[in-house]
């Protein structure tokens, strides 16, 4: 990795931090993985490729709603950012098709906590 300089750090404006418009994040801490987040993550990557759906799929840490893991957060342009809980492989596929491709939110999996 290249050395980082003071300027590299100073020039960052976190308020402008932009993850891009379209992304999916999977909570992958111990409890997420215990609940099956690794399978969900793998399924998202595989299926997105298979279905030609272009979206940035990333890992992240604890999102707080540990009792409804696995948690998947989805941001798609034109829709609010959404946290899905109790996501299974099947639900992951539905997220790709329904939410990402067709811009329709899924029923019964959204957790709007705080």
């Amino acid at each position: 990795m290249k050395k980082i300089t003071k300027e590299d750090i100073e020039k960052v404006d976190p308020s402008k931090k932009d993850l891009g418009k379209n992304w999916i994040k999977v909570g992958m801490s111990t409890c997420g993985v215990a609940a099956g987040a690794d399978e969900v993550y793998a399924a998202l990557i595989d299926e997105a490729k298979k279905r030609n759906i272009e979206i940035d799929i990333r890992k992240c840490g604890c999102q707080g709603a540990c009792s409804v893991e696995p948690l998947v957060e989805v941001n798609v342009e034109g829709l609010p950012k959404v946290l899905y809980g109790r996501v299974t492989k099947d639900v992951a596929v539905t997220i790709l098709e329904r939410h990402v491709r067709n811009k329709k939110l899924l029923h019964d999996y959204i957790f709007e906590i705080n």
Binding site: L105, F111, E112, I113
Partner: peptide, 9 residues
């Protein structure tokens, strides 16, 4: 869009 959610806080 009308969406049933699992938790609304």
């Amino acid at each position: 869009q009308l969406v049933k959610v699992a938790d609304i806080g």
